[in-house]
Design a protein around this nucleic acid. Structure first.
Lengths: 189, 189
DNA sequence: ACCTGAACACCGTTCAAGT
DNA sequence: ACCTGAACACCGTTCAAGT
């Protein structure tokens, strides 16, 4: 009977979710990426179990916190699809991707070590958003790439470099990939 | 006055260390790489604090457990230094290195994310053993490599690939590096 | 000197009770 | 339906007391 009987799966609870994300953003910035859940819940002014209800796993919360950054990264990828040189576009995006990963290490690690069970809807959305962006960029650059190179290969190398070193070094090392995956590598540099 | 007054910094304690390493090897194989310290200590038949005395950090214990494998890996590197093709030697070793890292993820992660404070003597020995092996292989292959490629670059990419994916995929992806770091990449394949 | 194991602190997770 | 916060279990770390 009430106006939001069937259509409103959320009442004031969505406010809690937003508050939790905002609090998480603050706490993560202050106390580092592995801050305690209790602290975040208290900061948001809700019970700790409410946090679990909205974000079953830590990765989910991180996805929510960094959602804006991720969509920005994907939009940047779309922009680069319009640029002149497909190869330049791919590697320009990879540079941004690397710095993105470097500051979200736990999220990137969850993507690799996390078993399939732990992968929730929210996490999956984040993962496919990035891989699909990479796939479009790789597909456009495909004529200039070795035929056996996939988007997954490129993402693996780039994120791996980001995980294994500091951002600056990761970018330097990603540049080396260019010859490695090119169909006809330029002889020098 | 006793025979081991000055020369014997260890009495029966070295036995405990050996027992701890053996127990850790067992428990890690059974319960995974992040098994609880208490369980390991109990298995070894010693108090938990004794474990901390011998191995202040988890990385130290892992280094001790995998010490044999690491020296084998480094000896394999030395053997490969005698082989005919320096480039083949380097990448043959990298393949073994990648599978090594893939099964010691926490150790590899400690090497990247661990702050400088946490790096103990034992940990440092392990780290330099591997990097020095890589450096010798890279130095011998240097004429075939781009002049700006360092051993650290190669290790970063290889261990990164190992961290970001399964061993098989990591090997596949390391093969792509070959053109990326070669001075004059072969035009095809 | 070296070891013991209890004690402490912390954190992720769950659950009965509220509204 | 949704939330609360106390309770539980677990684990890393420390420390006073033993030998």
């Amino acid at each position: 009977m009430s106006p939001d009987s069937k259509r409103g799966p959320r009442a004031d609870a969505s406010r809690n979710a937003a508050r939790l994300v905002a609090a998480a953003r603050e706490v993560l910035a202050e106390a580092g990426n592995d801050a305690a859940f209790d602290v975040i819940a208290r900061r948001a002014g809700v019970g700790n179990a409410t946090l679990y209800r909205h974000f079953p796993t830590r990765a989910d919360l991180l996805v929510a916190v960094y959602a804006d950054e991720v969509t920005a990264l994907c939009e940047r990828g779309s922009q680069l699809l319009e640029s002149a040189d497909p190869m330049d576009a791919l590697f320009a995006w990879l540079d941004e991707f690397v710095t993105h990963v470097a500051t979200k290490r736990p999220l990137a690690l969850a993507a690799t070590e996390g078993a399939a069970e732990r992968r929730t809807t929210l996490f999956h959305q984040w993962h496919t958003a990035i891989t699909s962006t990479a796939e479009r960029l790789v597909r456009r650059a495909q004529p200039g790439l070795r035929s056996d190179v996939t988007a997954i290969d490129v993402l693996t190398l780039a994120s791996g470099a980001a995980l294994a070193s500091d951002p600056a070094h990761a970018c330097r090392v990603v540049a080396m990939l260019r010859n490695g995956i090119a169909a006809r590598p330029s002889p020098e540099h």
